[in-house]
Design a protein around this nucleic acid. Structure first.
Lengths: 114, 114
DNA sequence: TTTGTATATGCCTTGACAGGTATATGCCTG
DNA sequence: CAGGCATATACCTGTCAAGGCATATACAAA
């Protein structure tokens, strides 16, 4: 499981990252909130830790896991050339913005184009 | 192979996407440039096509494959909350900027911090 | 129509990884 | 020290996807 990409290919791992983005969590809290068996949580945390996505500190019997930014920044960097690509394709960009509009709270819809 | 994440987990597929970002290519060109067996190329292109990363047009016996932006934009969207996270962690951000400096053409190095 | 080139597909094998269950380790409290 | 929580690890098993090779399809040129 070399790359950043393989790490985040696993849905449960993405869920864990999504949890940790707001604040640090103990294994038990993750287990509870994601309704995942404890060994599964521990295993995924191990993978994430070894890949540098998270780090942990000891709090008595608990371990608190928190997010580390670097690996996801690497992913962000990888996207750079593609961003250049799609900003040159304005039509597709507009379709994308429309998608964002649709998923918005019907307030002040549309972006006044055309 | 449901998700965007699983699709780009495969290195050869990322390589193909990297090729297509500059311009469209035929299967044979991809095969040649990436030194990959032709069936492998075709199989990966199939996966990418079915997931909406690429589309193809017919040119006699050749098929020209070109990039489509949407799936990678979806990935970009997924990163949003994490970007918020790491811009609140200034130290890590600075480390990141340092990394960018290091990979720059020694001209006008440093960003005048401190 | 035969031959050649470009691409797709089918079948098989192999390896990797995730989940389940059981168990180990570590720390805390009485 | 005994017991109980919290977390990690070991082992086993099933699944699935990637690669290799052979072959099919489609178009082209002679």
């Amino acid at each position: 499981m070399e790359s950043v990409f393989e790490i985040i290919a696993e849905p449960n791992r993405r869920a864990i990252l999504g949890l940790l983005v707001s604040s640090q969590q103990s294994v038990g809290e993750i287990e509870r909130r994601l309704r995942m068996p404890q060994p599964t949580v521990s295993k995924h945390l191990r993978v994430l830790r070894e890949a540098g996505f998270v780090e942990s500190t000891v709090d008595a019997q608990r371990r608190l896991y928190r997010l580390k930014p670097e690996p996801l920044q690497e992913l962000d960097d990888w996207l750079t050339p593609f961003r250049r690509f799609w900003s040159s394709h304005i039509d597709a960009l507009e379709r994308h913005l429309d998608r964002m509009d649709q998923s918005m709270p019907t307030k002040k819809k549309g972006r006044g184009r055309r």
